[in-house]
Every structure is written in C-alpha cells, then in structure tokens.
C-alpha cells in the first residue's frame, strides 16, 4: 500500500465531507476563470497585427508583430503625459484617499452619541451609491464659473474673479482627489469600523485604568488592532493603484471631467486605451498599452505584498 494512495483517499474523503462548501468555492473559481482568466488569452492580440474584420479567430491567425505596438506607445508624443498623469493621480489618491477612511472610522468609533454617529456614517457613505456620471453633473453645478461655489466665494468677497475649476489644468488633480474622497471615504469607513468593532474592549478599559488618554488608546490599541485589515486593504488598493486605488475611479473621472482645456493633466492610460481601442478600433494597440499598465500593477502588488510580509507579517499570499 503506497503512502500516496492513502493521502489521495484521505483527500477525497475530506472533499466529500466538505461537498456543500466546495460548491461555493467552485462557483467562485469558475466565475474567475471565465471572466478573469479566459479573457487573458486575448492579450496575445497586443503582439499581433489584428484587425477587427478578421473576427475572433483572427486574434490567433493574424500576423505576429512582436513588440511593435509597445514600441509605438513608448515613442508616442502622448506617452510621457499619459504615464505622468496616471502615476500622479493614482499616487495622490493613495496618499489622500487611503488614510481618510481610517481616520474617519477612528473618529466615528470615538463618538459618544450613537444617533449622531449613525447619521454621520449614513450621510458619509451615501455618495458611494451615486454614479460618477451624476457626480460629474453635480460638480458642474457646484464648480462652474456661475456655479454655487464661485457665486458664494465672489459674493462674500473671498474671490475677486470666479475660478474655472473644471477647465483649469492646474486644478484637475486636486478636483479628482477631492471628489474621490467625498464619494468613497464613507464607504471604506464601514470596513475599518467593522475592524474597530472587533477590538477587545477590555484592552481599552485596562488602558484607561492605567491612565491612558483617548489619543494614546487610539494610537496604542485601536490602530495596532486594525493593522491587519489596513494592510490587506492597502495591498488591494495598491493592486488597483492605476485604476484609482480603493475607488477605482480614475477612468470615470478622467472621461467625465476631462476636456480639451485640462487634458494635459486629465489624460490617463485608461482613457487612452478606451479611445484608441473603441473609438479608433485599434484593438491590438490598445491591448498592448493596457498590458503595459497591467504588468506595472502586477509588479507593484507583488512588491507591496513582499514588503508587507517582511514588515508586519500580514500579506495577501
């Protein structure tokens, strides 16, 4: 009787025992395979001279062109601008939008009035359910030259001339970050509030008896206790860094709020891929450009996971 056979039998037995649970896992795996892994076959298009008239099989039968489209993108006059904007907007969002839900969650958890806490929490996460199209419309009414903000600032003599928030290239990054924080902060706060709810109250009570003030308890108990959650969310956010971090809003923002006046700072790789791929029908080129972004994202997430494992012991895999 070989050892392998015994192990296989045990494995099968365990599988049988977990049958109903396994079904859930397999549904998830099939979903991932069909919608995430299978489409990756199309990446080969980025290395081929593919034209849409060749149909689906043309992806495999069209002529191999190697790195032609990758070189074209790197040599494109728009390359520098696209990469700069993509990185800058993404990093700014990571710096400002990632810590905000944590700070907000801590502040909410420290509130004494439960009713007020619930009201604030509800108001803060409601914008998450508004689509970016609506947010763009709202922001137009608020920030246009004759919008509410300009009217208010000019009438109160805080400004002499209205500011063109929506068409000033120097203000686009700030607008993108601000709107992102407004829309998504409340939603991600829920995750961190859940983590804070799991912190042992006895720790707080003991620290209070020992004379620790509120800030010290936050620093030494609350924050260390939610560290694993923070790290996991951070890794996920970095994995989607170029998509806009936690909210994944880079594309929608750039597409809806970008215009010819602010394109110097609002054009990003994702909108470029969309324009080139769908508007111009250059699927092969768009695939190559998209692949470059995906590879950079993968490198980032692997590095982040590695660093996180070394420093905090928490990691995704």
């Amino acid at each position: 009787m070989s050892k392998g056979k015994v192990t296989g039998c045990k494995y099968f037995h365990a599988l049988k025992k977990q049958f109903s649970l396994q079904i859930f896992v397999w549904v998830g795996l099939i979903y991932l395979f069909v919608f995430s892994y299978l489409p990756m076959v199309g990446l080969v298009m980025g290395f081929k001279d593919y034209d849409i008239v060749d149909g689906v099989w043309g992806i495999f039968t069209s002529e191999w062109v190697g790195l032609k489209y990758f070189k074209e993108f790197v040599n494109d006059v728009m390359f520098e601008r696209l990469v700069r904007n993509t990185i800058a907007i993404s990093v700014l969002k990571m710096i400002f939008t990632f810590p905000m839900p944590i700070i907000f969650a801590v502040m909410l958890s420290e509130m004494r009035s439960l009713k007020y806490k619930k009201l604030v929490q509800t108001c803060s996460y409601l914008p998450h359910f508004i689509s970016w199209v609506v947010v763009a419309g709202i922001s137009f009414h608020f920030f246009s030259l004759k919008g509410i903000i300009n009217t208010l600032l000019v009438n109160t003599r805080l400004l002499q001339e209205p500011i063109s928030y929506l068409s000033d290239k120097d203000l686009y990054w700030a607008m993108a970050v601000f709107l992102d924080v407004w829309k998504e902060m409340g939603w991600w706060t829920i995750v961190f509030l859940a983590a804070i709810a799991g912190v042992n109250h006895e720790l707080h009570e003991a620290a209070a008896i020992d004379g620790a003030g509120r800030l010290k308890r936050i620093w030494h108990i609350t924050l260390p206790s939610i560290k694993p959650t923070v790290v996991i969310v951070l890794i996920l956010a970095i994995g989607n860094l170029f998509g806009g971090g936690l909210s994944g809003s880079n594309f929608e923002q750039s597409y809806l709020l970008g215009n010819s006046m602010n394109s110097e700072t609002s054009d990003i790789i994702q909108t470029y891929v969309y324009e080139v791929g769908l508007s111009q029908g250059r699927y092969a080129y768009a695939t190559a450009v998209g692949l470059i972004q995906s590879v950079i994202s993968l490198i980032l997430i692997l590095n982040c996971n590695f660093i996180s494992k070394k420093i905090s012991g928490s990691s995704l895999f």
Partner: peptide, 8 residues
C-alpha cells in the same frame, strides 16, 4: 472663455 471652450 476657457470653460465655454472646454465644453464639447
């Protein structure tokens, strides 16, 4: 005006 021009 820039904002008008930006409107496509």
């Amino acid at each position: 005006e820039a904002e008008y021009y930006a409107n496509e």
